[in-house]
Simulated scan of single mutants.
Amino acid sequence: MKTLLQPSRTSTSLLATTAPLPTPTHPDDVLVRVHATSPCAGELRWAIDYPAAIPADKLLVPCQDLAGTVVTASGKFHPGDRVYCRVSAARAGAARDYALPRASELARIPPSLGWVEAAATPLSALTAWQALFVQGTLDAAGIEDGGSDDARARNGQVRVLVAGAGGGVGSWLVQLAALAGAGAVVAVCGPDKADAVRALGATEVVDYRKTTIKDWVAGDGDARECGLVVDVIGGETLAGCWAAVRDGGALVSITAAPDALRPEGVVKTLERSLFFIVEPLGSNLEEIGELVEAGRVRPTVDSVWEFDEYEKAFERLDSGHAKGKVVIKVSGEA
C-alpha cells in the first residue's frame, strides 16, 4: 500500500513510499480502508516536542484523522461500514491506504457527510466538545434535542471567548457554544474570517490584527470578561486570555498550561485553569454525528488535496491562513 512516512523522530519532512498492510495486534484493532485524512498543525514535531507522548516504536505515519470503510472487524463494526475517527497520537496515523484505528475510537459517519467532510471532523470536533463540555464549564445537556431548560439557563450565564475562532477547532467551538446556549460567543480571529464565524454563531468578533485581547477587554472592563475562555493559539494570545477570563472563571488551552503564561501581576483565582490533550473517543463522536445529521453543526473544509500533493497540503496547513480543515484524499473514492 502507499503511505507517507517521517524518516525519523528528529525529522519534520515526509516521504511517499510503500509498505505492507498493517496487521491487527490488539483485540480492539479494526482494519479500515482509508478514503480521506486530515493533517494536524505541528504534528511533524510531536516526537521532538513531546517525546514522552510518542512511543519509541511508533511507526511515524502522519495524519491521525481518518474517514474510511471497515475491512475486517468484529463486534460493533462490520465490513463495509463507513466510519471516521481520531486515531491516538501514540499510534500510526492514516496517511496510507489502510489504517488500524481501535473500535473505541470509531463512530459511523453520518449519512449526510461525504468522505472529505468526514475526514475534516474528528480531531476538531472532539477537541471543541471536550474543551467546552468536559474540561470547560458548559453543560452538554443544553444542546440535546430541544435542550434541557436548566442546562441552557446555566449556559446562558456564561460568556465564552474563543481565541483562534477561525480555524478548524475554533469553528467547532463557536458552533457548539452557540448551540448550547452560551450567553455570548466572542470570536477572536482575523478580519477575513469574521463573516464566517458570525455565520457559525459568534455574537461578537475581535479582530486580533487591530487590537489585543487585553486592550479589547479594557475597552469595556468587567462587561467584556468571560466565564469560559478557550485558547487554541498559545503564546502571547494565551497570555492575553488572562485579561479576558473573569475571576472565578475557567481558562482552557490545547496549546500549553495557562499558569505558565500568567502575566505578572494577575491575581485572579480561577475555577479551572488547564491544558489538555484530546481523547479520541468514539462515544463523543457519535454525539457530534447526531448533531451533524440533524443539520445543527457542520465541518468546515479549507481545501482538498490529492495524495501526491501532500507537501502542498502541509504547506497550506502551516501557513496559518487555513479557514477550516485541510484534507488529503487517499483513495479514488474520496
Results as ranks from 00 to 15, higher is better:
L173A: 06
D220F: 00
D139F: 05
D29A: 07
E236D: 15
S319E: 11
I213G: 00
R45N: 15
G227S: 07
T137F: 03
S38V: 05
V206A: 01
I213P: 00
A177V: 08
L228R: 06
Y208H: 03
R102A: 03
I48A: 10
G320M: 01
D247V: 08
Q6V: 11
I277L: 12
G265N: 08
V186Y: 02
E290P: 07
Q6M: 15
G248H: 08
I233V: 15
L161R: 02
H26F: 07
L285H: 01
Q64E: 11
K76R: 14
A120G: 03
A294M: 06
D49E: 14
L5V: 15
W216S: 01
V267M: 12
A73W: 08
L14E: 11
D57G: 08
L59Q: 14
S148K: 09
V301A: 06
I328T: 09
A260D: 14
A260M: 12
A163Y: 03
W305P: 00
D247G: 09
W242G: 03
P20G: 12
K312Q: 15
E309R: 13
A90C: 07
V87D: 07
G289A: 07
L261G: 05
N155T: 07
A182K: 04
T10D: 15
G147A: 06
D195C: 05
R159A: 03
P55W: 06
Q135D: 04
T72R: 12
Y208R: 04
C63Q: 09
P191N: 10
E264A: 15
G190I: 03
Q6A: 13
R91Y: 14
M1C: 11
L251N: 09
A163K: 03
A53F: 14
I288Q: 05
P110E: 12
D145I: 07
P27I: 07
N284Q: 12
A53L: 15
E290H: 13
S88K: 03
D29E: 03
L44D: 00
V32A: 01
